[in-house]
């Protein structure tokens, strides 16, 4: 672990020196949080919080899952994230689909290898897709040559556990002002990030009984009981979600950080699917359904022709909070005149 720390510190110093030059730069804390679901169930989660004063000395914004949306200005092609790890385990940050220098971290017993396994070693296993940030440390994650679109950022460390604990969020970048992708203008954008919670798994991870020899040894029995959009399951108390006005080109950014395929279905209007996984489609697909694989993103344009409420719901029927009906992955999209 010592190799890893010194490497991160070096990177931190290098980036700190040029901090003012880059517009797309975020300071984020990784922290545990507790959420109460609409049925009263408390769920231990992990989340991200923006560090507003960039010094990581205090927690100065709420910890959320998903984490804050990271917006990269249209003219910028680089992103730097300074990550403070407030968890008891190492973590890291990756953005599938974007190019970065990846430094996998291998483990075998108490040995940790950064980058490569030693020559001849075929038994160490990858714990992190890229360099780790140790508990209490600050890591730096950088991307260059960023492509525009809708992207999922997430933990790159033990992802089967850390992502479902809540370590995910949206990264968005427009190709130009008011343009999602070249030739695809939009008036406003609405992010719809789908994820799931298996409270039993969360409890095992939070209480340290997850893993070899523990109460739960793997995620094979994953059984989500809460179905979230933007971190919140639907409940009767939730009002409609304003999305825009009649005639506007409303970009719906669909992301899935869950482990199961979701199929959002819109009632009352069609969508024009314009991109999948950050790649614009040559010919948009006109559908009312949006198949959304785990880890996937889809951009869809909604151009409503009448005001009113358009229900959007998961057709895989993750529509409960626990066993209770009337919840889950449902939003009532409000179109104003």
């Amino acid at each position: 672990m010592r190799t890893c720390d010194s490497r991160v510190l070096l990177l931190l110093l290098l980036v700190a020196a040029s901090r003012e030059a880059s517009a797309a730069e975020y300071f984020i804390q990784v922290r545990p949080l507790s959420r109460t679901m609409p049925d009263g169930q408390a769920v231990a989660m992990w989340g991200y919080a923006l560090d507003e004063d960039h010094d990581f000395s205090t927690l100065d914004s709420p910890i959320t899952a998903p984490g804050p949306q990271l917006t990269v200005p249209e003219g910028d092609t680089t992103l730097t994230v300074h990550l403070y790890n407030g968890l008891a385990v190492p973590t890291s940050l990756v953005i599938p689909g974007q190019v970065a220098l990846m430094t996998p971290t291998w483990v075998e017993g108490s040995a940790v290898y950064v980058g490569q396994r030693p020559a001849g070693n075929v038994t160490a296993r990858v714990r992190s897709f890229t360099h780790e940030t140790a508990p209490g440390a600050v890591g730096v994650y950088s991307w260059t040559g960023l492509k525009p679109g809708t992207w999922l950022y997430q933990s790159g460390t033990h992802p089967a556990v850390q992502v479902q604990m809540g370590l995910y969020g949206a990264m968005v970048k427009a190709s130009a002002a008011g343009e999602a992708y070249p030739g695809i203008p939009y008036a406003r954008a609405v992010t719809l990030l789908f994820s799931e919670v298996d409270p039993v798994l969360h409890e095992a991870v939070a209480s340290g009984t997850y893993g070899p020899g523990g109460a739960i040894t793997s995620t094979i029995g994953y059984r989500p009981r809460y179905f979230l959009i933007n971190g919140e399951p639907y409940s009767a108390a939730m009002g409609p979600l304003p999305v825009g006005r009649v005639g506007e080109r409303i970009l719906l950014r669909f992301l899935s950080a869950g482990q199961q395929t979701r199929v959002p279905v819109l009632l009352g209007a069609y969508l024009s699917l314009v991109a999948e996984g950050g790649s614009p489609l040559r010919y948009p697909s006109h559908q009312y359904s949006v198949p959304l694989p785990a880890g996937g993103t889809v951009d869809a344009l909604l151009i409503p022709d009448t005001p009113g409420v358009l229900p959007l719901y998961d057709r895989r029927l993750g529509l409960t909070n626990g066993a209770a009906t009337g919840g889950g992955m449902l939003r009532l999209l409000q179109v104003s005149p």
Partner: peptide
Amino acid sequence: LVFPGQAGVVATGGVPGLLA
């Protein structure tokens, strides 16, 4: 009843529900 893919569905009678 809900009709995915149909626009302008008008419901009369009954009581308000979650999707229709």
